[in-house]
């Protein structure tokens, strides 16, 4: 059926048929390369193997959990941003994966202007840890004026029961 439909499309609208063919070939190529390259080409649905034991993250101020006060979608958004903040905080000197990809796709020696533009707009290294921490203090349920600092608590489960705390620096008044 799909070949017949495609053939009908080819006879009626060649441009669109070519676009469909390009999509299928592109998907096959990028799946083979294992790279997420366009948003509509990658639907892994829990296909990637896990590299570390399970752990979960909470955002705490004083003795209360900030996350528990947020609606589910916002909570997920904040957790993901906190994970991103942690990754960068733990590897501040390391080059980000995006910076590596820019260098790989547009080497600075060959494309200095494009490289500089992409670095400015894509790479997140220019956002400092303290600057991004300020955003967490602006979340609802966080008291930015109080004495308590905001903490990211990372808690392991199973054999990895270690709990780690990371302090988010307060924004300058």
């Amino acid at each position: 059926m799909c070949v017949k439909d495609w053939w009908n499309l080819w006879q009626k609208r060649k441009g669109l048929a070519l676009a469909v063919l390009a999509f299928v070939l592109g998907q096959a190529y990028f799946s083979f390369k294992g790279v997420e390259t366009f948003p509509w080409l990658h639907f892994g649905m829990f296909s990637a193997p896990y590299q570390s034991p399970p752990e979960y993250l909470d955002l705490e101020q004083g003795l209360h959990s900030v996350l528990k006060e947020l609606p589910a979608k916002k909570r997920e958004f904040v957790v993901q941003n906190a994970k991103f903040w942690l990754q960068r905080h733990q590897n501040e000197t390391a080059q980000s994966p995006v910076a590596e990809a820019i260098e790989q796709r547009f080497p600075s020696a060959k494309f200095p202007q494009v490289h500089a533009l992409l670095h400015k707009n894509l790479n997140q290294n220019h956002v400092s840890s303290a600057e991004s921490a300020a955003w967490f203090y602006s979340l609802e349920g966080v008291n930015s004026q109080g004495p308590d600092l905001l903490l990211i608590r990372l808690r392991g489960v199973g054999e990895n029961r270690i709990t780690e705390y990371y302090t988010l620096p307060k924004p300058n008044p």
Partner: peptide, 14 residues
């Protein structure tokens, strides 16, 4: 979202 600080493009051309 309160102007979040990060915008991660990953390796996605779009």
């Amino acid at each position: 979202l309160g102007s979040p600080p990060f915008a991660n493009p990953e390796a996605d051309w779009l």
